[in-house]
Structures are given as C-alpha cells and as structure tokens.
Design a protein around this nucleic acid. Sequence first.
DNA 1: GTTATTTGACCGTC
DNA 2: GACGGTCAAATAAC
Length: 350
Amino acid sequence: MENSNMHGEKMSLINELAQGRELARQLQIHLNVPSSSHGTRESLVQKIIVSYEKALSMLNSSSSASGGEQQLPTGHAAIRMIESPPTSLNGSPRSEDSDREFKDQDNKDSSRKRKTLPRWTQQIRVTSGMGLEGPLDDGFSWRKYGQKDILGAKYPRGYYRCTHRNAQCCLATKQVQRSDEDPTVFEITYRGRHTCTQASTSTTSAPPLPPPQNSMDIVDPQQNQQQPQDLLLTIPQGLTVVTEGLDAGDQELFPYNPLNHNYGGHFSPPFMGPTTSGTQYLSVSEQGFGGGGQSFQGAECEIPEILSSATSANNSPIAAAALGFPFGQADQNLYPNFSFDGPGFFPHSY
DNA sequence: GTTATTTGACCGTC
DNA sequence: GACGGTCAAATAAC
C-alpha cells in the first residue's frame, strides 16, 4: 500500500511540476503576445504559483505524515486535510442527503437528478470581525431560493443557487448551515458546478472546488492543495475554512469543476485527498471570503445528460468540456494517468 | 421596473 | 409520517 502511495505521490509530484513547466511556457508565449490580456497573464502566474506550492506541499506532506494532514509551506495559510466522515461540526443532521444520495445512486439511479450531483462541503469559521455573512460571498452570484429549519440544528439552513441558473443553465447550488455549537462556523455544502461564464470571470474570488477524490486516485492524490490554494485568494483573513471532502457519495463526483477555470483559471486536477472524504482547514487573514459553491438542480439544462454521455462516450472533448474538465488534450498529456473511462471516475451515469 | 429575498406549500425519500 | 430540498407567490430592495 505504501509503496503504491509513494509511487502515486511521486507521479503526482512529477505531474504537478510538469504542469508548472507547461504553464510557464504558456506564460512565456503570452508575454510575447501583445494582445494577451493582463488577466490572462495573471492567471497563468497564479496557476504556476499554485502548481509549485502544491508540489512543495506534496514533498512536505510525504515527509511528514500519512495521516492526511498537510501544511502548506507558504505561510499565509494552514491547510489541513482530515479524513473524517462528513458529519457536521455541530452534530446536526448536516446534508443528510449525503448518505441518502449515496444510497440512491447505489440503488436506483437517478430518478432525481439532484441526487447525482457532485457535492462537497466546506466549513468556514469567521474568526474576526467580518459580517457573519461574509463567508457566504465567494465571488459567485448566488440567489437564495429557500431556507429550512433543520432538525437538530439551531440555525436554519439556507439554500442558494447560481443566479445564472436560467440564463446559462448553471446548476451550481449551495447550502449554508450555521454550526450550532459554534455560530462562527458555517458549513457550506456545494452541489454541482458552475457552468456559467461568471465562473470563468471571477478570478478574484475562489469559489470552492469540488474535491474530486476519484480523480485524485486517478490523477494525483495530492493535488488537494489546489482548492485551499484558490481559497486563499479570496478568503478573508481571520477565517478558517474547512473543506469537508466529498461526501460518501462522491464516487459520483467528477473531479473537475468549471470553476477551476475560474480561479486562476485553471484547472487543477484533483485537489482533494486520496480518501473519499476529507476536511480541509484554511486559516486566512481577514478580508472577505466568499464561500462559493455550486450545485445543481435545474432540470431544464441538459448538462446532466451531457455528463451522462460523457461517461459513456469516453474522452469526448465535448463531454469533457461540458463537464468542465479543466484540462484539454494538453492537460491530459500532463496527466497521462487520467482517464474518463475508469469505473471509479464516473461510476454512474449522470 | 427589475431583481433578490422570504416563506409557506409541495414533492421525493426514508 | 417525518424530514430535507425545491418551487413559486408575495414582498422587499435597488
């Protein structure tokens, strides 16, 4: 086991470094292109930084522990991945649908689309004076469509979906649940991915990325740093962000989120831990963060169907695009181990 | 006037 | 029947 892990980490490290190199090349090209926008260059720079930081994190973590705890050497954030069941901090019935969805997928399959959406959770702690609502703003436009008192929870759960849901068929949704025990902690569960252009333009914010555990296994088990890294860009100082990895049902997650393009734009394959679930803690200094999230639910959009097709039609560029796969062919070169046809990748049709 | 939020009702799942 | 998630009308804010 360890050997395979070690090997996997090495491969991941190599991939990460290769990605960084490729990004540097792209930056070089852009620097020579007058028409290239500043934003594009910035994006590439950010990607390179992220890539190298991830590589460093891998080295750091591999030498430290295998307990799923990692620390970025960057100093501006402490990221911790904790393998833990997707339970809420407060013990409240947090996304109970986690298991429910899991069962559904297992048993019936997708009579209800929302049950098949990728989902991941972040726990955000507001440690210093910013509005408690601050953490809810992740740079994406969310529209609240519901609020519900949850059994066993002191605070109601808020339901949000992407503002561009109708206009751009963006199925991203998120649920915001305040912790009972610690009101400064918000548990944000994201569903689905942003497919709206907004996702690709909000480079200043770092909406949480879905922790693609599966992809992780396939591509790079250590890339989990990606998300935290991105989050750092927008999370207000003083906030502690805990990303609870994909819930148990994440076998269904696609590893990537169109969002990835946004943040810095790029994709970074998997940033979640090698395990099916995990928690990431981000401690940042204060300024505004936004918890972004996404999830899906719409029915008018055909994304789910497209995704489904994607699972059956391996390597379809269109499907990949629809899925928001960050990497194109070039990226695939960077991640030779990645494949769409792995049963662990798209275990179920969407 | 347009867009976002609130809130009760409805639906699906367990 | 209980519960969570979503819808949609009413209301508020811009």
